[in-house]
Nucleic acid binder design. Structure first.
Lengths: 345, 345
DNA sequence: TTTACTGTTGCAATCGATTGCAATCGGACT
DNA sequence: AGTCCGATTGCAATCGATTGCAACAGTAAA
């Protein structure tokens, strides 16, 4: 590889770091180099080729920071994950992480980079303003409203390019993409009741508004159909969930015959606890989850659950954000959840 | 809230966007404002307070891009996830996503931001150089070597601040943090054999070097103990894994009595397929996984597996990277995996 | 030969914060 | 009163790419 060696030598000999360096070698002005590399301007084809060749040879890449400063845009979208209720929640929450993966795909495809920031609002009042005002991002996607609904709503008034994954409330001011949690809750309760359950329980934290909406939907159906329902507070921190569920089950065993879990993660843990207690599913107790994670089809027995379309959600978030970056004031997007019937209810 | 209103009015009336704007209001020079806000310089206490007050009142934040340009550092660490073998692999790979979560925590704690980029090397030869040369990041963490070992190794020669999650090879040039996959493979095989298995199979793709090392470790033990072992190629794409495993099982049912799955994700799917075929675990067939994901303790039966310490891995990655940012040429870090005995072997 | 025009290129200002160096001021000391 | 010192502050260059405008060359038309 003599050619390659020579090239490497040349590369290290004359270090080309700036447009100006390259311009000197090419015998043109920095401006011309800039235009040539940008490709879109009116540069002579031959000049452009020559400049491109030199750039390639020296492995030159224009400094992004200078470029971004000058052009007043970063090409970066900030993705914030506020950890409000359970600090350790989302670390292992497959749902959020999968959403993040899809977001990364969508943004990459549209030519944006993704800056990830996990924030703990309790320790940092100012997280959203800081993120937005940092000048590092052109727009922001917030994954999960957590307990920050008010703050997000306030910021939304003065900052257009922000889209939030979460629940849609009547009269809210920020643009949100998310499933119809209330409807999902209804679907779950309907299924449980249709399977014969008469004393329901909701397993999960009812503080976050997404979960509150799921519970509310289930309650509405239960009420209409004359069935009881109660909430059993359960956290999402992976090391606590198991014990909490066990405690609940110990206390109320026999008092309920249908469980609506706030997420599949909780449902899966619940299934295991029930298995350990040799409670037959679904004959003795019915279970419905929420999310339809990949694991959910592989539990024993396979989990009946309410599916959220994560890919569509990510696409929606990015799509709306890009439109907002163009100045459009978009409406929220509410996605319909779907009941996936398997064997637990 | 009249005070607040007045403040808002003032805020919108005189828009303070730059140091210079603020300097004019404060009646000092931009340089002084810069120093005052940076906090670390020799600015008169009273001046500083006044400047800080004005900044707070107007919600002023210095432009990061300008700052980064001038200081020649970004405070951003790039995290790249190359998708080499299965493009859709990591989207749902809990392990990588959890690692990412921990990385975000660690980096945040150290005052760095995290820029996430998912790359498909097959479509983008130049991904690593582009990321590094973009001028957007001070350093890079690569999650998974995928099939990019050579490329990463090449880049490592000329670029210090890079750390990679993956497998450590004899004589490699890039700094890596990862589990001792070979040892993990040994532990798994030993356990299977100790449980009575005599005809082993490795379930997974043997191309990625992490998996190859796991398989190699298992093979070594099998050979030493006079036990057979074969590889059953299985992809990680969630929608294909199931079928592939089913096909394998259909073909070789009865010919094997011990399965070492390359990851817990595969093991969980495998468990389900075995359940569907009413194969008794562990009496008829023993299974050992790799990773010890949260789900793994909740399968039926609970999965015996080899644990990787994700949190320690993330800490190691960040720690080594920061030292490299200080110019130190660090050694690789190999973490010992641990066998977690549950009920599948 | 002059005028007009088109296609390229160079010049220089600009984005906004940082920082080395020089200037200034008040006070202390001789 | 004159000199010196330390604490602050201002000045101006700098980071590197972008871009409006002017300048230029070359060609075609008059």
């Amino acid at each position: 590889m003599t050619g390659s060696d020579a090239q490497n030598l040349a590369r290290s000999a004359t270090k080309v770091r700036t447009l100006a360096d390259l311009a000197k070698i090419a015998g043109v002005s920095p401006g011309t180099v800039s235009r040539a590399l940008a490709g879109n301007s009116l540069v002579n084809a031959k000049t452009r080729e020559k400049i491109e060749a030199i750039a390639r040879e020296h492995g030159f890449r224009p400094n992004q920071m200078a470029s971004k400063l000058r052009r007043q845009k970063t090409g970066v979208i900030g993705v914030a994950i506020p950890l409000g209720h359970d600090v350790r929640q989302q670390i292992s929450d497959t749902f959020f992480m999968t959403l993040l993966g899809h977001l990364a795909d969508e943004l990459t495809e549209k030519g944006y980079d993704l800056m990830l920031r996990r924030v703990i609002p309790a320790q940092d009042e100012d997280w959203l303003d800081r993120f937005i005002g940092s000048g590092m991002v052109d727009g922001v996607i917030v994954i999960g409203q957590s307990d920050q609904f008010e703050r997000i709503d306030d910021v939304a008034d003065g900052y257009l390019p922000m889209v939030v994954w979460g629940n849609h409330q009547e009269g809210q001011r920020h643009c949100v993409v998310g499933s119809d949690n209330r409807l999902g809750g209804k679907l779950a309760a309907e299924r449980l009741i249709a399977s014969g359950a008469k004393r329901l329980a909701f397993l999960g934290d009812t503080q976050p508004i997404e979960f509150a909406a799921r519970y509310a939907g289930a309650k509405e159906v239960a009420k209409k159909l004359g069935v009881s329902i109660r909430a059993l507070p359960t956290h999402l921190a992976p090391d606590r969930t198991g014990e909490e569920i066990a405690a609940h089950l110990g206390k109320i065993e026999g008092e309920i015959d249908g469980i609506f879990a706030a997420t599949d993660t909780i449902a899966v843990t619940c299934l295991k606890e029930l298995r350990d207690r040799s409670i037959a599913i679904p004959s003795q107790l019915k279970v419905v989850g929420f999310d339809d994670l990949p694991i959910s089809s592989q539990t024993a027995p396979p989990l009946t659950t309410v599916r959220q379309d994560i890919a569509a959600g990510a696409k929606g978030l990015v799509d709306l954000l890009l439109r907002r970056l163009n100045g459009e004031d978009t409406e929220s997007l509410v996605l319909p959840p779907h009941l996936i019937v398997r064997e637990t209810a």
